[in-house]
Amino acid sequence: MNTSRREFFKISILGSAVLLLGSSLSTKILAKPDHASLEQNYSFMRPLDIEFILALAPAILSVNKSGAFTEKVQLQLISTIDRQIASLGEDSQKKLRQLFELLTSSSLRYLAGAPTSQWSTTSAEQADSFLMGWKTSMFSLKRTGYAALVKLVTMSWYCQSENYQQSGYPGPPKIYLPQE
């Protein structure tokens, strides 16, 4: 079987799996995350989503977990992404939920071309190769998924005032409101 046919079959199974499981994929079958400290009150993000995003972020932003990408910075990124997702429409949130469930499910993600190991142990190189696979896929579902994931991370990163200087952006003027 040539590569594209194999990929076609995988994507078909993937599509059916997403349809069948929908957003009802029970959290029971999801493994326990490593970072208990990351469990907070988020409106969208679940512990495994956080591990997933934190596995992708070093590859997307070229940041090093042992360097500037400290736990504090990670938490800030996650809460910004969570707020960003919360402002999306219900339908988009539902689709993102399906995407996250698929990619964090230990039994399904290999179909999607994701590393079979836990996201928490995935290297930046592995994450990058997963992203490149989706970016260059012949299937629009994957290309659109790539765009959605990358957008969430980069938008949330560069909107933070702490990161303005990375783009040479001096930031907006300071506003002093009149006394009411």
Binding site: A59, I60, L61, S62, D128, L131, K135, A147, V150, K151, V153, T154, M155, W157, Y158, C159, N163, Y164, S167, Y169
Partner: peptide, 14 residues
Amino acid sequence: HPGITSIMLMGHGN
């Protein structure tokens, strides 16, 4: 502005 530009550049990594 930086947030929207990061999306418009369509990519990731270095």
